Structure formats: C-alpha cells, structure tokens
Simulated assay, not measured.
Amino acid sequence: MHGQYVLYRDPALYWAGKPGHTFPCRVLLNSVHLELESLLSGERFKADPDYARLLPAGDCMRDVDEAPLQGECPDLQPAAVAWLKQNMQREAS
C-alpha cells in the first residue's frame, strides 16, 4: 500500500459526532499501523488500517477512461487518445 491513496476515518472524531472525521491520505508506510499523510493538511500520523480504505485509481481516472474521443470535452481528448494507444500497444504485445 506504500504510495497508495486511502480514505481515512478518524474513529474518535466520528463517534464524537465531530466534523472532519473522514479525509483522503497518502500511505507513507505500511506495517502494523499505517503511517499516513493527510492530503488536506499535510499532517503525518499513525493509523489503524481498519479505518482506511484504498481509493482505486480507476475512480480517480474515470473521466479520462470514459472521455469521448471527440465532441463535448476537447481538453480530455489527448489524454483519452494517449490512454488508448498505451493499452492497445500492451494488448498487441
């Protein structure tokens, strides 16, 4: 999980009903506890892995993966074409 992105829920804040209990983080170290860095504040802390969920790359890249090749989103067209070329080359090898 090192270098991956997770959604972390601070159980103490959550059960106390306080705001800001769930936020995205980057995994710095994966051992008995995760060492996380908040993407919002930059704070580094140790966390119980039971309260972290992996954020799939597919969710982050969905707009590129599903971008039309022409039309509504001309800014995404180069990214979508590049993605298609890379995947077509992989499948051909």
Rank of each mutant, 00 (worst) to 15 (best):
Q70S: 01
G3R: 15
A92P: 03
C25F: 09
N30D: 07
E37N: 11
D50M: 04
A82I: 05
V81R: 06
V6Q: 06
L28F: 12
L29G: 15
E72N: 03
Q89S: 09
L39W: 05
V32K: 14
V64K: 01
L7N: 02
R62T: 00
L28R: 14
F45W: 09
Q70L: 00
M88W: 12
L55I: 10
L7M: 12
W83F: 02
L36K: 01
R53D: 05
A47Q: 14
D59R: 12
E43Q: 13
A79N: 11
L13W: 10
F45L: 01
P24F: 14
R44D: 05
P68N: 01
P11E: 02
V64W: 03
Y8W: 06
G20C: 05
H33W: 14
D59S: 15
E91A: 09
L29F: 12
A52F: 01
L84A: 07
A16T: 15
P74H: 02
N30P: 07
D48P: 05
L36Q: 03
E37W: 12
P68C: 00
F45S: 01
R9D: 07
E37G: 12
C25W: 06
E66T: 06
A80G: 08
E66M: 02
A82W: 06
W83A: 04
G71F: 00
P24Y: 12
V6H: 06
P24V: 13
K85V: 05
S41K: 09
Q70A: 00
A12R: 13
V81N: 02
M61D: 07
P24R: 08
C25H: 05
K85Q: 04
Q86C: 05
Y14V: 15
P78E: 00
A82C: 07
A92R: 12
V64T: 07
M88L: 14
D65P: 06
K46P: 14
L40D: 09
A12S: 15
D59N: 14
C25M: 05
R62C: 00
P56Y: 01
P74F: 04
Q77E: 01
A79S: 09
Y51N: 03
R53T: 08
V32Q: 15
C25V: 07
E37P: 15
P11V: 10
D59Y: 06
C73D: 08
P74L: 02
V81Y: 04
D50I: 06
G58M: 01
Q89A: 13
D59M: 05
A82Y: 06
L55H: 09
W83M: 12
P11Q: 13
V64D: 03
Y5N: 14
